[in-house]
Design a protein around this nucleic acid. Structure first.
Ligand SMILES: [Mn+2]
Ligand SMILES: [Mn+2]
Ligand SMILES: [Zn+2]
Ligand SMILES: [Zn+2]
Lengths: 149, 149
DNA sequence: GATAGATTTTGAATCATTCTAAACACCAAC
DNA sequence: GTTGGTGTTTAGAATGATTCAAAATCTATC
């Protein structure tokens, strides 16, 4: 079920890790491929369970380590909703998250540049932004699946 | 240090609680007044410590209870930053939060209606929003205090 | 002033995450 | 091919914010 990384994806992983003097390992490959395979913003436990199917000896601590590493090198984003378990997202394009209260599912919402600049424009002088996080809460009305890959 | 509630504030509290058939208690009054007295988005522990100054017997569980009650009746908002302790905010106007990475402080950023509608406009069909949360991360450049009351 | 319902209190339980220390893997130098 | 160094993985313990459970306290009403 968890196919290997494509040429391109492996390169991206290798490249991202290289910056911190870190290496591609079998565990990191699997964890990354789990994130790419089903972009439904899984929790650590979900990643762990999916990854274990291809690598039974994998430990939970390693999944935490890998994900932290990926976040550190900018390959992956953390997604938090209140104090629920952290979820992980490999979508590097600027996007917001929509959390469906009835299903608990998290959807990516593309974020056009003009929205970002509108947002930056409301900051008073002296506030320098590194990043902006936007999350919608609500529910989705039928409207076909809203695919999470 | 923690002055009592004004007429108006007490009424607001009483009114908000009444909807759920709940009553004003000395503990709830103190906890609410702590939030109003210093709008720096305190954590539960910070609220607890401040409140204890006026009511030494107050328990931590009660602070959790009061805050949960307030959130439930819409008097107060929770503010989360990643998985840090939840903070509490009595500002009911639509606003975003700016988290200063160097000081850890959280500032309110007024949110004009046109920004909210711009944001709503990027949602694909079928996504019905109940609420939108926006948080900026960055640092503040001198520019006088950025008062947190 | 007894009874019921809400609230508060204490202390224990939960549970995601982090930490620690021991095993491993890899590679380059000897 | 052994050794030393460095980064990685692993299992299990520790942490810490939050939640829970149950007893004690209050308050309003009969
Ligand atoms: Mn709804
Ligand atoms: Mn910065
Ligand atoms: Zn995402
Ligand atoms: Zn606020």
């Amino acid at each position: 079920m968890i196919q290997n990384l494509s040429e391109h994806q492996r390169e991206q992983l290798q490249e991202a890790l290289a910056h911190g003097g870190q290496k591609v390992t079998p565990q990191r490959e699997i964890v990354y491929s789990v994130l790419l395979a089903k972009r439904d913003h899984p929790t650590v436990d979900e990643v762990f369970n999916r990854a274990r199917e291809s690598m039974p000896g994998l430990s939970l601590a390693t999944v935490y380590n890998c994900l932290e590493t990926f976040v550190g090198c900018g390959l992956v984003r953390q997604v938090n909703h209140e104090r629920e378990s952290t979820r992980y997202c490999p979508n590097l394009a600027p996007h917001a998250h929509f959390r469906d209260e009835s299903t608990g599912r998290v959807h990516d919402i593309e974020l056009p540049e003009h929205v970002l600049s509108t947002l930056r424009s409301i900051l008073p002088n002296g506030f320098e932004t590194d990043s902006i996080e936007i999350s919608f809460h609500g529910h989705t009305k039928n409207s076909r699946n809203h695919n999470s890959n």
